[in-house]
């Protein structure tokens, strides 16, 4: 059960990401933390594919294929996220997520 290692790694990585998202005030750092969580998911996908392939005899690399998709979309997402952060900066001269509460009530 070698898969336990990458899964544990992924869980830790994800936790770091969650921590970052919840605790950081800087939008860029929050974005980076989100990236960490995505990376954790990618690791998870690859690890899970290993389990599925060995135990059920699935020859297809479903997990890896999804991982590639997620990486691609993740890149796009970073682009959008950074664009939002840039706009936020341009409007408010800071990127503190606590101050961005236009959607309040």
């Amino acid at each position: 059960m070698a898969a336990i290692y990458p899964l544990t790694f992924a869980a830790l990585l994800f936790s770091v990401g969650v921590y970052g998202v919840l605790s950081r005030r800087n939008a860029v750092l929050v974005l980076m933390s989100v990236e960490l969580m995505i990376a954790a998911v990618v690791v998870n996908l690859v690890a899970m594919n290993e389990i599925v392939a060995t135990q059920m005899g699935d020859p297809l690399l479903t997990g890896q294929a999804f991982a590639l998709f997620v990486l691609g979309i993740g890149a796009a997402e970073v682009g959008v996220g950074l664009a939002i952060v840039l706009l936020l900066y341009r409007n408010r001269a800071n990127v503190n997520v606590d101050d961005a509460e236009l959607m309040k009530y």
Binding site: V21, L22, V30, V97, D98, A100, E101, L102, K104, Y105
Partner: peptide, 17 residues
């Protein structure tokens, strides 16, 4: 009810978590 709608993204994320 509307107190929940704080506009704070992190609060939402925390709630989701």
């Amino acid at each position: 009810v509307r107190l929940a709608q704080s506009g704070n993204v992190q609060l939402y994320a925390g709630a989701m978590f």
